[in-house]
Computed example of a mutant assay.
Amino acid sequence: MLFVEYPKCSTCRKAKQWLKDNGIDFTDRDITVQNPTGQELRQWQARSGLPLRKFFNTSGQLYKSLHLKEKLSAMSEEEQIALLASDGMMVKRPIVVAGGTVLVGFRPAEWEQALK
Results as ranks from 00 to 15, higher is better:
Met1Pro: 07
Met1Thr: 11
Glu5Arg: 14
Tyr6Leu: 15
Lys8Thr: 12
Lys8Ile: 06
Ser10Cys: 08
Cys12Leu: 10
Arg13Pro: 04
Arg13Ser: 09
Lys16Arg: 15
Lys16Asn: 08
Trp18Ala: 06
Leu19Met: 13
Leu19Tyr: 12
Leu19Asp: 07
Asp21Ser: 15
Asn22Ala: 03
Asn22Arg: 14
Asn22Glu: 04
Ile24Leu: 15
Ile24Tyr: 07
Ile24Trp: 11
Ile24Glu: 08
Asp25Tyr: 01
Phe26Gly: 06
Asp28Lys: 14
Arg29Ser: 10
Asp30Tyr: 09
Asp30Phe: 11
Asp30Gly: 05
Asp30Arg: 13
Ile31Cys: 07
Thr32Leu: 15
Val33Ser: 04
Gln34Met: 05
Asn35Gly: 03
Pro36Thr: 06
Pro36Asp: 06
Gly38Val: 11
Gly38Met: 09
Gly38Lys: 12
Gln39Ala: 15
Gln39Leu: 09
Glu40Pro: 01
Glu40Trp: 04
Leu41Thr: 03
Leu41Asp: 03
Arg42Tyr: 00
Gln43Leu: 13
Gln43Asp: 14
Gln43Met: 10
Gln43His: 07
Gln45Asp: 00
Ala46Cys: 00
Arg47Gly: 00
Arg47Trp: 05
Ser48Val: 11
Ser48Asp: 06
Gly49Pro: 12
Pro51Tyr: 08
Pro51Glu: 13
Leu52Thr: 06
Lys54Met: 13
Lys54Gln: 13
Phe55Ile: 03
Phe56Met: 09
Phe56Tyr: 12
Phe56Asn: 04
Ser59Glu: 07
Ser59Lys: 15
Ser59Leu: 11
Gly60Ala: 03
Gln61Leu: 09
Gln61Ser: 13
Gln61Lys: 12
Leu62Ser: 05
Tyr63Glu: 03
Lys64Cys: 01
Ser65Glu: 15
Ser65Met: 14
Ser65Asn: 15
Leu66Lys: 14
His67Gln: 13
Lys69Glu: 12
Lys69Gly: 15
Lys69Phe: 10
Lys69Ile: 03
Lys69Leu: 10
Lys71Pro: 06
Lys71Tyr: 06
Leu72Ala: 13
Ser73Phe: 12
Ala74Ile: 00
Ser76Glu: 02
Ser76Ile: 02
Glu78Asn: 11
Glu78Lys: 02
Glu79Gly: 01
Gln80Trp: 00
Leu83Ile: 02
Leu84Val: 06
Ala85His: 01
Ala85Gly: 00
Ala85Glu: 02
Gly88Asn: 10
Gly88Pro: 04
Met90Asp: 05
Val91Arg: 11
Lys92Arg: 15
Lys92His: 06
Arg93Ala: 10
Arg93Gly: 03
Pro94Thr: 01
Pro94Gln: 01
Pro94Glu: 02
Pro94Ala: 00
Ile95Asp: 12
Val96Arg: 06
Val96Glu: 03
Val96Ile: 15
Ala98Ser: 15
Ala98Met: 07
Gly99Ile: 13
Gly100Leu: 03
Thr101Gln: 09
Leu103Val: 02
Val104Asn: 00
Val104His: 00
Val104Ala: 00
Phe106Gln: 03
Arg107Asp: 04
Pro108Phe: 11
Pro108Tyr: 09
Ala109Tyr: 02
Ala109Gln: 14
Glu112Pro: 01
Glu112Cys: 01
Gln113Asp: 11
Gln113Ala: 14
Ala114Tyr: 09
Ala114Asn: 10
Leu115Arg: 10
Lys116Glu: 04
